[in-house]
Design a protein around this nucleic acid. Sequence first.
RNA 1: GCCUGGGUGGCGGAACGGGUAGACGCAAGGGACUUAAAAUCCCUCGGGGUUCGCCCCGUGCCGGUUCGAGUCCGGCCCCAGGCACCA
Length: 830
Amino acid sequence: MPPRYQPRRLEEKWQRIWEERRLFNAQENPSRPKYYVLEMFPYPSGRIHMGHVRNYTIGDVVARYQRMRGFNVLHPMGWDAFGLPAENAALARGMHPARWTYENIDYMRGQLKNLGYSYDWPRELATCDPQYYRWEQQVFIEMFRRGLAYKKKAPVNWCPRCATVLANEQVEDGLCWRCDSPVHLKELDQWFFKITDYAEELLRDLDQLTHWPERVLTMQRHWIGKSPGAEIVFPLAHGGDPIKVFTTRADTLFGATFMSLAPEHPLALALAQGTPQESEVRRFVEYWQAQNRSRGVLEEITKEGVFTGRYCVNPVAGWQMPIYVANFVLMEYGTGAVMAVPAHDQRDFEFAKKYELPIKVVIQPPDAAAALRAEDLTAALEEDGVLVNSGDFTGLASAPARQAIADFLAREGKGRHSVHFRLRDWLISRQRYWGAPIPIIYCERCGLVPVPEADLPVVLPLDVEITGEGGSPLAHLASFYQVPCPGCGGPGRREVDTMDTFVESSWYFLRYASADYRDGILDPDRVNYWLPVDQYIGGIEHAVLHLLYARFFTKVLRDLGLVQIDEPFTRLLTQGMVLKDGAKMAKSKGNVVDPEYMIEQYGTDTTRLFLLFAAPPEKDLEWSDQGVAGASRFLHRLWNLVHSLLPDLQKVAAYQGDGAGLSAGLLEFRHQVHRTIKKVTDDIEDSFHFNTAIAAVMELVNAFYLTAENSPREPLTMQVFREAVEAMLLLVNPMVPHLAEELWQALGHATSLQQLPWPQARAEALVKSTITVVIQVNGKVRSKLTAPAAATDEEIKGWALNDPAIQKWLQDGPPKRVVLARRKLVNIVV
RNA sequence: GCCUGGGUGGCGGAACGGGUAGACGCAAGGGACUUAAAAUCCCUCGGGGUUCGCCCCGUGCCGGUUCGAGUCCGGCCCCAGGCACCA
């Protein structure tokens, strides 16, 4: 009686052996090619969920595969351990955030070990560890010294529920990304990272990322939002500081008939002073400043404005333009002032119609039959065309005209070429407790003073009371904030805000290379050996947030001389979500499948196999209990197949010959074995399409059962079978490593499968002696024939025409044409 | 509105240098084994017709190119995601 496949027992056994032999602990070795594969590290929320399992399984297959391909593989794991949920859990359970976090880490680490992932555990890090954020604080100080970290008072996103500010990237449809509360703008003094200094490079280098998904690149391009254009100066008719505008449509300057200012524009009230419109303007400005004009609300608002009583002068046309304050102009973009061209901008058109302002056509569509007349317009003509009524520039096309007009303005001192970005600086201070303290001390005499390196880390004190009152509890802890100024020794006050948790995740992948390094932020030798990450794997939800910040940090650390790379992640795989009943698994929906339960029921190999087989990795995956049962069934089939042959397989060595002397059946079988090797290799190499790779192995197993049934158990056959079994075990090892190891050992091997090379398809086994040719008549399949591989094209055509099933189609006369395609198909046209 | 993906059986998904549509798996139906059930094995499984040899239709819709189109081209429709008074 062969042994039954009992997954849990052998999985525990092999996990223990791998750990004892330290098979996955990577050593730097410049003589070997390296491969760094990384999955986005988890937040220690309490338990591993199925989305994690999918993410880490994909990464583990890549890691094990690349090891077998001969690479020196780095595959680390850690914890994104700071963040708000720890504080909320502390409030709900009266547990300190630190204890809650570390208990979760311990539990989840155990779960990951049960899943059998080949991690380099000695490099494990937790971002809430002072040994980690100490170096982050040092990066902050370096950035502060270079002006890349700065403090300013500005209208920022404020979430009242979380009682903290948020970065632009953390506001979705006007709602907080964590708690979905409406976010509003609040004027506050906050810390920023100057990511806008890198806007141009962050945009340009996207072109290097040829192995990133197109949609992620597009989302980042869009988020950075580069607009080339011109800055144009409009003098005031009555003198004083002129108004500057930014425009992408300098070609329409001769059509600018009025000016619109944002309600927050400093000139809005100043201009109206002393005019009959003053009180009306004041009411309008005060009203719109008080309105919530965050995203999502704006599109509902109708365009309104009010005349300031003042005029500015069109710098090329010379006429006076009334200055309005308008509710649709944003202070945050451009200069907060817009030159209004009603004929060629839809918003300005609607505004001009409403307030009866002049409309001047200055662009003609190139294909227009007759001259466009302002009176006939029912909507703005926003497309490019040819300039009319535009002085010396009349007759130019829009694109060259933009250039020429900006050049002209620059010469006259009335403007210049200019580029604007949508990207804002990254607001990184948070009024929260569970985060890395910002290492700055305020002194009345010295101003903002960075904490001296010798005093790092600024350790987050643990003896605080979490009240949930809002504001950081550190602000109430005198022992924390009362410190002498490092500059003058006078009384100082420590910064009590902490850093956005996205700061930690912006450089953790660099720290893994030298996680134990005590003498600096990064160990140059090791970080330059391992980086960049060759394959990064994680959810699409970080397409902008984390992936943009991490790219920014890499460039900053490069400019600090700490790394030599421009981009951190060479290849990116954004894996899809795990769904159940069509929805993302969530406690609130009651559709959660617990990985721990699946492992108990079926084992980790089955769980891994199902997740890899059910869908290609980049697509969403619908959970199916029956699908899991099917994966389990396959592993049993494989197990039983090998065990049914085992006594005979143990007596022979794997077949080494070139096929000479094998029966036709064995030749065909061996052909399929090597075709499967090629197919699995190609599927993993080209696209990580494990689903089709697994399908190919399933086909081979099916064929194996048939062949084994019909073959005598003689030594030559068993040699071919042993070759097939060994190839199969090597092929499935990255996906179901425990089962593969166990069967490998059962064959009598002493070496771990993890240290063996990936199999190679033998060229002589890939060629076939016969080919199958499909015969079509008028493009429809009517028959097929088997021909010797050596047959000529003419012979194949001849056999096709003589095929008995084809005769009835040829009754109405000879074929008009016979096409042979790739020696696979004959199409007879009648 | 703009941008990026994507529409293939009952379901997950295969097949893209144009060349046998539906691999592999799940579900379903029938059968074998069993006192019975589970497990396992065998057969059927896009729709319609059939003299059981086959024949017709079929990859979101409408056209086109081609000996041949799920795949290429033109025009639409729908779904998902991202951005959005960005001047």
